[in-house]
Amino acid sequence: MKAAKFDYEAPASLDEALSRLAENGGKPVSGGQSMGPMLNMRLATPDLLVDLRRLDELNGYSQGDGKLVVGAAVTHAQVEDGALPDVTKGMMASVASDIAYRPVRTRGTIGGSLCHADPAADWPSALTALDATLVVAGTGGTRRIGIDDFLLGAFAIALNEGEVLIAVEIPVLSDAARWGYFKFCRKTGEFAETICGVVFDPANDIRRVVLGALGGAPKRLGELEDRLGDGIPGVNGIAAAIDALDIAFEPAQLVMHNTAVRRALRQAFGS
């Protein structure tokens, strides 16, 4: 498995990267943890790879206005290691620490993961639960888009040709906020069989229960979100909320998803 021939450029600035992408129709890459295998298996055969990983505009963070703005090229390991201020009461660091393996985390980036949009990956579900907003740049300027509108399906996102995800805005959770995150993998580092992320922070108007690893974009369990804060929902309520998604799960999958939601809720509200 050797990649087909391609050109590689690492522009010095975001503007340069955007103009290269606009001119040449290249493919952006950051950590390369998904792009690398896709190139080698020739599932991706771009003429040009534009490396965004070292761009200043996509690295680092800033905080203000009740949110933390995280550069899209920040690695999972940086999140795990506490290189960012903890505005999620430990949730993001906890999620990051369980992504794949450490070697993947040292290279893989939060923006790359969102743009790849693998349904079984962590950030799409976790950041949906956190009600993140994404900052997207194109040659015409930047725009902000809520994560619910950004994730369209399996490997499908609302990014236009030539646009680049440059940052992720995370709300600063209040002291009273509660969260839970449960993921089940067949082995350490594998993609998930089921994911559930729960964030409850009325001060920020966040009431979210998100089910992931569904084969498409993560789904919010609206029936449960409406009742968050009224005690832990019972088994039947959880089952009904998952049924309401109207997805045809295999029986075993359905058991796993129910378990994930139960355990994430218990983590959020259990004590």
Partner: peptide, 11 residues
């Protein structure tokens, strides 16, 4: 003996 097969057996 995967999680799926064990859950199927329980079901």
């Amino acid at each position: 003996m995967t999680p799926h097969r064990i859950l199927d057996a329980i079901q």
